[in-house]
Each structure stands twice: as C-alpha cells, then as structure tokens.
C-alpha cells in the first residue's frame, strides 16, 4: 500500500540494503511453478528478510504484498504476526486491514485464522462487532466452512450467555434465506445442543428447560420439513436432536407418516391444523426418501420381529424404487436385521 504496486523491490532504493534470496539454489526443481516477475521479486526479498530476521514496519508492507498475491502463503502470515508483536502496531489497525482481506480472500484459511490470533492476542475484542462482520461475510458466501467455524470458535471463546441466545435469530435468518443451507443447520445444533443457546443445554440446564428446548426444536424442524420435505439437512438435524436427547424415533412417526404417502392418497384428508404434525406443502414431492428411511429406522428400533419385518419392507422400496443408487446400502441394512429375525 505504501509503495506503488508496479515497482519491484529489486528497483526500490528503500530495499537496497536487503539481499534477495532466490528460491532454489543448486537444485533444478521438478514440477516448478512459473512465477510472475512481481511474485518472484517479492518472495525473493521475503526470503532475504527471513534470513536476517528483520522485524520492522517495512516487513509488514512486504508481507501484505505477498499475501495479496497469494493469501495462502502461511509463512508470510506467520512472519507478519511475529512482526506485528515485535513492532507493537495497534492490533485494531490490523483488524481493519483484515476486514478488507477477509472479504477479498474469503476462501482462504489464513485470513480467518489471522483474525483469530489478533482477537486472542489483544483480548479487548468487541465480540458483537465481530459477529456482525462474520454475518456480513456469510451473506456473501453462505456456506463458507472457515467463516462458520470461526463464528463457532468465537462464540465458544467468548462464552457469553447473551451472545449464545442471540444466535438463534441469526440461524433463523440464514435458514429463511435458504432452508437447505446445511452449515446453518449445523450452527443451530452447535448453538442449541453444544453451546449455551438452548437455555444452558450445553452446560447444564434443568429438566424442564431441556424439555422445553426439545419441544421447540422439534416444532421448528417439522415446520421446515413441511415446507420442503426433500431436504436432507432438516432430516439430519431431526435425527441429531433425537439421538442427542435419546428420544425414541417412534414418537415422531405420526408426523413422519404424512411424508411417505403419495399426494394422490392424501385427497380427502382433513383441514384441521395440527401444529405438532404439520402436513406437507402443496408442492411436496412424495414419498420423501428421508421419511421412508426414518420410518424404517424407527421400526427397526422397536426391537421386535414385527418392527424388523416392517423395516425390511421399506428398505426394499428404497433399494429397488426410491433410492436405487444406494441399493447396496439398503440391502446391507436388510441383511443386518435378517440375522436377528426370529433369533
């Protein structure tokens, strides 16, 4: 930023005291990268700096230049962090630069990790500002893995009850945008069941609270399933919640059954609204594969021959009609219970 982008370090008098270090000496490398002159120049000077161990403001400029050319250059990031600490630059300034770089190089591990180092190091962090920044980034790239896990880390690191609770609104906003966004579903699970967003689910909580949260989560998930039943993210969340709370799958069957019948078979069903068991939307394409699978699992878990037989029937439907690509897996499930039938 301080020197014009088109001036090479080799031509820059301010860098005349540094001896550039070529990458390969005495080696004729196999499978080399054909660098641009600009990149080669900057990294030659970086290697020169690393050799002398210099940590000064101009090193910040050099590492920024390299990072802009290749944000995955982890050694430049490392050296930059060490230099920041050595020259005692206000970390807020660095965070502002990171605001820009994070948006530009959203897909890079290093930009998010550098933020994390800065926050950990300075500790006078403003988590709300940070959460807002992350939210903005996620609007641009709704499933960015690093951004989501960074948000989860931040929540855990700060561990503030108010922040945990506020996350539910955020998740709902993201799922309103796209109820198939699996990253948002995972975030919901993290916040509600592993963090402090479920009224202290992750860290204690009374029995009444736990039951209230379970009811709330089941209602929420069923509602989203009813809007678009063929959404594996919602079904996986439902299963995750039931597994986590050790709730029998069978308890949900009255709801799930609505999703394994054909649309034509639904004609004449009542118009009574049952909030516990919201029916599939008009556009739903049934039977829903995930509902068939869920029902079969619920039957199998009954633990008796009757249940196992019913499960096998459904797995056959999946293997031969509804989910043929996974035929071998469904047959594997059938073999798994056939060993038990009558035993």
């Amino acid at each position: 930023m301080t020197s014009p982008a088109d001036v090479l370090y080799a031509d820059n008098p301010a860098w005349a005291d540094v001896t550039p270090l070529p990458q390969y000496e005495g080696v004729n490398p196999l499978a080399p990268i054909l660098y641009t002159e600009e990149y080669k120049d900057a990294t030659d000077y970086f290697r020169g700096i690393v050799k002398t161990g210099e940590k000064s403001p101009r090193v910040l400029e050099l590492t920024e230049k390299i990072i802009r050319l290749n944000p995955a250059h982890y050694s430049a990031w490392q050296y930059r962090f060490e230099t920041l600490k050595a020259v005692k630059v206000p970390l807020e300034d660095e965070l502002k630069l990171m605001d820009e770089l994070a948006v530009k190089y959203l897909k890079t591990y290093q930009v998010w990790h550098h933020r994390r180092l800065l926050l950990t190091e300075s500790y006078n962090l403003e988590p709300k500002r940070e959460l807002e920044f992350i939210a903005k980034s996620l609007k641009a790239d709704t499933k960015n893995y690093h951004t989501w896990s960074y948000r989860q880390w931040l929540l855990a690191f700060v561990n503030d009850g108010e922040l945990w609770v506020g996350e539910l609104d955020f998740v709902e906003e993201m799922l309103n945008e796209d109820l198939r966004n699996n990253s948002a579903w995972h975030h919901r699970f993290f916040v509600v069941w592993l963090g402090g967003g479920g009224g202290g689910m992750g860290v204690g909580g009374t029995r009444e609270e736990k039951e209230r949260v379970l009811r709330r989560e089941l209602t929420f998930t069923k509602q989203l399933i009813s809007l678009a039943p063929n959404n594996p993210s919602a079904w996986n969340y439902l299963r995750g919640v039931l597994d986590r709370t050790e709730t029998p799958y069978g308890l949900i069957l009255p709801f799930v059954r609505l999703y394994i019948v054909n649309l034509s078979d639904r004609a004449g069903s009542t118009d009574i609204v049952d909030v516990e068991n919201p029916p599939p939307s008009e556009g739903a394409q049934l039977p829903c594969t995930a509902a068939l699978e869920f029902t079969a699992d619920a039957y199998e878990r009954q633990g008796d021959d009757e249940g196992r037989k019913k499960a096998v029937e459904l797995w056959k439907v999946l293997a031969n009609e509804q989910d043929t690509i996974r035929k071998r897996y469904w047959e594997f499930r059938i073999r798994g219970v056939e060993k038990k039938v009558g035993a």
Binding site: A31, P32, I33, L34, Y35, Y39, N70, A72, H73, Y74
Partner: peptide, 13 residues
C-alpha cells in the same frame, strides 16, 4: 512447470 495461476499454491509445492 505449472502455469502462473498456480502461484496460489506456492505454499503447497
């Protein structure tokens, strides 16, 4: 050699 767009993988040689 790898073309210049592989500069993004310079730290992954």
């Amino acid at each position: 050699g790898f073309p210049a767009r592989y500069i993004s993988q310079d730290a992954s040689q």
